[in-house]
Amino acid sequence: MKAFRKYWTILRISLQNAFVYRSNVLGGLVFFLIFMFVFFNLWRAIYQSGEVAGYSLVQMVWYLCMTELIMFGCRTGIFSQMNEDVKSGSIAYQLNRPYHYVWYQFFNALGGMVFNLLIYGLMAVIMAMIMVGPIPGFNFATLPLSLISMMLAMFINFFFLMALGLTAFRLEENTAFYLIYQKLVFMLGMFIPVEFLPGWLQAITRYLPFPYMTWAPARLIVAFSWELFWSVVPVQLLWFGLSVILSMAIYRHGVAGIQAHGG
């Protein structure tokens, strides 16, 4: 009960903070808009007619809106924040508190994620409606299920980012991990659906976490099927668990040898 109150309060305050600290939202919205507009035109040019690998133009645009939404939703700056906290020494305030640091960071970011999801979600839906209109045959009854998958996708991405960020406890320079990670997320599901990848790459990608951060929920939204749901959500749960365990392990290893800078 006490633990519940603790983490709930963290979530509440961080959500409050997200609403007060709005200045970075506007920039994000503009960026989102430009990004969607450019890719909408690109896809429209590619799609002269019909379907590509099982996606119509309408589905493709919605797909992109959803993967973008997930990525923007996760924009809590967890990676750079951790780096900065270690380098500036602010980490000293966060470590000697009676909570689990990893869960603290999670609930702290969750406020921002909920806020982002509301703002960018609205934006994504409006833009997709304007550009291509509704998805033919969309069933609202299955939306909550797709949203569960979307939530899991965000959590997986968040915990992998946190795991990368936590390496700052031991390493002076870890930005390279982040850049590589970002590119992989972009190529393996965010920018193009997994079905578009060459067969050999698809086969490898199936065993990586990346498609489960973007492709799985976006595909569920644009073409829901129970078969797909049961084949991706358990895998998402597995990756979620693994990403949490990875973060915890890196945290435990890192905190024992942390080099706190900044006087």
Binding site: I13, N17, V20, G89, S90, G262, G263
Partner: peptide
């Protein structure tokens, strides 16, 4: 030299 308070709240 560091702060434990939320800057915007």
């Amino acid at each position: 030299q560091k702060s434990q308070l939320w800057f915007h709240l």
